[in-house]
Amino acid sequence: MKKLLNQKGFTLVEMMIVLLIISVLLLVTIPNIAKHTATIDSKGCDAYINMVSAQIEAYKLEFKEIPTLLSLNTTGFIKEEKLVCPGGQELTIDVNGVVSEKAS
């Protein structure tokens, strides 16, 4: 009889309290993550634009001309055939070698 009284474990009430706490934390965390998705995509796009601009500058130093996307691709400076930010915005390279978001 003594063995039965010394059993260790969680009660149903303790498990319900833990589940309640986890649920509240999820309800608070998920909307905050969703709000910051646009900011994350924007910063990712800015970083991608800076990377492509750096590749354009490297191409200019090597070949002494302003590159097109095709010339960047064929010489191996950029592997992508189409420049697209993480958020889905398409990028273009103008005649001066400036990278910008494509006008819709």
Rank of each mutant, 00 (worst) to 15 (best):
S100H: 08
N32V: 07
E81T: 13
N32M: 03
G88Q: 08
E90I: 12
K102V: 02
E81M: 06
C45H: 04
V95T: 13
A47R: 06
V28I: 12
E80P: 03
Q7H: 11
A103T: 06
V24H: 05
G44K: 05
L91T: 06
P67H: 01
A54R: 11
G87S: 10
Q7S: 12
V18Y: 08
V99E: 00
K2Q: 14
E62F: 00
I40L: 12
T11E: 14
V99K: 01
E62Q: 15
T74L: 15
L26P: 09
I21V: 15
T68V: 03
A54N: 08
F77S: 03
V13P: 03
L5P: 00
L4D: 15
A38N: 04
G97A: 09
F10A: 03
L26C: 07
V28N: 00
A58E: 11
H36W: 12
D94L: 00
N73D: 05
G76M: 12
G44H: 03
I93K: 03
M16S: 15
L26Q: 09
G88I: 01
I66R: 04
L26T: 08
A58W: 03
D94T: 05
M1V: 09
A38R: 10
N73V: 06
T92C: 09
I78W: 00
D46C: 02
K60C: 00
Y48M: 14
Y59L: 01
A38Y: 01
L25Y: 06
S53D: 11
A38K: 03
